[in-house]
Design a protein around this nucleic acid. Sequence first.
DNA 1: TTGTATGCGTTATCAC
DNA 2: GTGATAACGCATACAA
Lengths: 355, 355
Amino acid sequence: MKEGEIYMEKKNVTFDDIAKFTGFSKTTISRFFNKPDSLTEKNQKIIKDALDKLGYQGQNQLARNLAKGKTEYIGVIIPNLYLHYFSHLLNNILQTYEEFGYKFMVFVEGENEEEEKQYIRELMSYQVEGLLMMSHQIPSASLAQLGIPVVGIEREDQFISSVNCDNYAGALEAVRLLESHHCDVYLHINTPTNVLTPAYQRIVGFQDYCDKHHLPNEVIVRSMGNEYGKILPVMTSLFDNIEAWYKGKKVGIFFADDTRANCFLNLLVRKYKTLPPNYKLVGFDDSPIATEAVYSLSTVGQKTEIIAREAVRMLIGEIRARKEAKNGQELSKPQHKVIMPALIKRESTELENKY
Amino acid sequence: MKEGEIYMEKKNVTFDDIAKFTGFSKTTISRFFNKPDSLTEKNQKIIKDALDKLGYQGQNQLARNLAKGKTEYIGVIIPNLYLHYFSHLLNNILQTYEEFGYKFMVFVEGENEEEEKQYIRELMSYQVEGLLMMSHQIPSASLAQLGIPVVGIEREDQFISSVNCDNYAGALEAVRLLESHHCDVYLHINTPTNVLTPAYQRIVGFQDYCDKHHLPNEVIVRSMGNEYGKILPVMTSLFDNIEAWYKGKKVGIFFADDTRANCFLNLLVRKYKTLPPNYKLVGFDDSPIATEAVYSLSTVGQKTEIIAREAVRMLIGEIRARKEAKNGQELSKPQHKVIMPALIKRESTELENKY
DNA sequence: TTGTATGCGTTATCAC
DNA sequence: GTGATAACGCATACAA
C-alpha cells in the first residue's frame, strides 16, 4: 500500500482517504470541517497538513447534501434572457449567492405548461428547497401545491408569495411628470395585458391619475409583441394616427416600456429631424435603450437589484419557516412585497427644443 | 401501519416506500425506472399504479448521482448579464438542455481571480463534469490543470479548448462592405484589447484588409469602458476630432461593437438631423441596439446560438472522451472551433440620404 | 475530544 | 426476472 500509488490515482480524495492517511476516523475528519473547535489544535494541524499532501479538492456536496437532507438549491424559471429586464433580474439573483449562499438552478421557460411542469419536477428531483418563478405559464394555484415555497416576480400571484415593482405608483409618477409639462392630451400605449399581472397596474395607475385630475386621456392597446421588429410596423401606424388625431396639440405619452417609447421616438426624430417640443415621452424599466436612444428617454426605473434581493430573501425566509413548523400544518399565508420604482427624468421630457 | 397515515406524512416517497408498498425489493423498483423491460409487464403495471397511490414525486437525483458517480452538471462562469452578448449566449446555453440533457450551474464572474477560483472549487465540489468559461480572469494555463474539461468562449484559450466567433473574417466582411461604398478613409474604433483575446482579431482583420487593398486607414484605440454612459464622453471628443480631421471626406468606420457604433450614430444624427451620406458605419454583434437605433445599424452578426451549441457539444465530447480514456494518460489536445459570423446590411451603410 | 454504528436514497454486483 | 448486500461520501446520535 504505497501512498504514492494509491492516492495519486484516485480522482477525488474522500474523508475515508484522509482518515486512513492520518489515522483518525471519518467522523473526526467530518468534524474538522464542520466543528473544527471540537478538535485539538494539534490534531487540526495534522489534518490540515494531510489535506495538502493528498491534494484535497473539497468535499463532495452531493453526499453532504444527501446526508443532511438539504441542499440550499433554489430553482429558477425565467421566460427568457433576450429581454434586458429578465437578464438583469437574473444577474441580480445570481449575485445574491455572495450574501445568502444559496445556489441557483436556472431553466428557461418551456414551450407550454406541460413542458414547464416537467422542468419543475426535474428541479424538485434535485431537491431544490424553493422556487423563484418569473415565468407565467403555470397558474399560481398549481404552484401553491408543489410542497415547497414559491416566490413569483412580476407574474400572477394570487396563491403564492411575490415581489413586484410598484407598477401602480410608477404609472402615477410617469403621468405626473407628463402633467408637469402641461400637455393637451395624455396617452398610454400598451399591449393586451392580463388583468392579474402586476404590469396591468400600469394601465390602472394611468387611468386613475387621469380621472382624478381630469386629464383628457386615452389608453391605446395594440397587440404588437415584444421585439422591435414586431413593434415597429404597429407603432408606425399608431404614430400616423396620433399625428392626425392630435395635430397641433401637445401630446404626453406614457409607454408600457422603453422599447416601445424608443420606437416612437425614432419615428418622431426621423420625421421631424429632432425631438419636437410638442411631444413628451416616458417609458418604463430604465433598460439600456433608455440611455442609448438618440434622445435619452425619461422612464420609470425598476429597482431590479432590490427586487431580486427581496425575492431571494423572502424565499429563504419561507424555506426556513417551513422547516420550523414541520408539524404545524398551517403554512404561512402568501406575502406580497412591492418595491417602489424611481422616476428618471431625461431628454424625452426635459429637452427644450425648437424647430 | 395504516397506509394513509404513514405515506401521506412522508415528504418524499422513496424506492424503499414503493418496495414495501408493492412487496418488491428496492432493486426491482430501481430497475423499473432504469430498465423497465427487465420486468414483467404485469409487475410494471403494479408498480406504476403504486406510484400514483403513493403520490410519487420523482427520484432523488442527489442520491442517484452519488451512486452513479456522475451528475451531468456543467459549471458556467459568465462575466455578467448586463451586456446583451452574454445574456444571449447564456440563454442559448441553457436552451441546450433540451438537446443534451446536461444541467447548468451558473456563477457570475467574481471580483478577482481568487474569488473566481473559489467559485470553481465550489462548482467542482458539486461534481460538475465540465466547465464553460466566458470569464477571462483566470489564465487558461490554470484552467487546464483543473482535472475536468474546460471550454472557453471568446476568451484567452491557449491551453484549453474553445469556441469563438471568427472575428478576423467578420472584420474582413465589415471593411469590405465599407469599401463597396468607396470611402476616402477607413477607421476602426476600439478599446484597448488583450492580444490573446479572440476579439483582438477584429483589429488585425481590419488592418490586414486595409493593408492588402491599400486603403487609407487608421485604428483608433481609446479606453472607454463598456457602458453607454462611459462611452459617450470619449466618443464625443473622438467625434469632434474625426469631424475636423476628415472634413469633407467620405468616412467609413468599423466599430468594435454596436453600442459604440450607435453612440457615434446618435452624435451624427443630433448634429446633422439625419444620417449624413458621407458616413458609413458598421458595428459588431447584432445586438438589439443595432435594430433599435434611430437608423438601423449594419453589423457583423455573431451566431450565438451556434456558438453556444458547439461549445456545449464540444465540452460534452471531452467529458465522454476523458471517461473512456480513464487509463490513457494522454488527454486529447485542446480543440479550437471558430464560427463564421454573418454580415448584416442595414441603414447605417445602405441608406441613400441627402442633406 | 474522539470513535462506532447507522442512515441518506440511489445504483451495482452478485447470487438465485 | 428478482432479491440480498454492498457501495457512493458524508452527517449524526450515541458511546467511550
